[in-house]
């Protein structure tokens, strides 16, 4: 069958004004030449094809793009990739794989702490970061610390269950072992 449309394709002009940088993503050094406008989020998704990190609002209003930069959680949509040369980036792909889940990923699975799964990478990256943040012990404390990640499916109760389960397990592991154990 013939095309519905006349083919009118013109050559593009790419490459102008790009910046060469080195980034470390999930422990791997990446050397790239990128458009200075490109956010870390779009760099991860469009260039590295690490699509686990999601775009929900592109303006720091939903948390779906949460990653770790030098060990701290941030919104990758509000970070210019080129400004993070030399930084250590960790994404959901750097946390675990379907066959080797991080304890937080396992807890999300066990507690059904998601529905559609779209905000989940960001939720988990926040939840993992929370473990080393000065967050209080109560459910309410965790709710506040997790409020930068919108879950429109509303799986919040199960997200809290998953995080508190991991925190309890961590405390057990950290507790001194009884003699002879």
């Amino acid at each position: 069958m013939t095309s519905l449309f006349d083919a009118a394709v013109t050559a593009s002009d790419a490459g102008e004004g790009r910046i060469a940088i080195k980034l470390r993503v999930n422990g791997q050094e990446r050397e790239v030449s990128i458009d200075p406008r490109m956010t870390l989020l779009d760099y991860l998704r469009d260039v590295l094809h690490l699509t686990g990190t999601k775009k929900g609002c592109d303006h720091g209003q939903c948390g779906a793009c949460t990653i770790h930069i030098n060990g701290r959680r941030m919104n990758s949509c509000l970070a210019l990739a080129a400004a993070h040369a030399g930084d250590e980036i960790t994404t959901i792909e750097g946390l675990g794989t379907p066959g080797r889940l991080h304890p937080m990923q396992a807890a999300f699975l066990e507690n059904d702490a998601y529905q559609c799964g779209y905000c989940t990478s960001g939720q988990i990256m926040s939840a993992v970061a929370l473990l080393s943040e000065p967050c209080g012990a109560s459910d309410d404390d965790v709710r506040e610390f997790m409020s930068g990640n919108i879950c429109r499916c509303g799986a919040y109760p199960n997200i809290i269950r998953a995080i508190q389960q991991v925190r309890r397990d961590q405390q057990k592991d950290a507790a001194p072992q009884p003699a002879g154990a």
Partner: peptide, 11 residues
């Protein structure tokens, strides 16, 4: 679930 919690589910 394993695909969703690891970011490997493709939307």
């Amino acid at each position: 679930g394993p695909l969703k919690v690891t970011g490997t589910a493709r939307f």
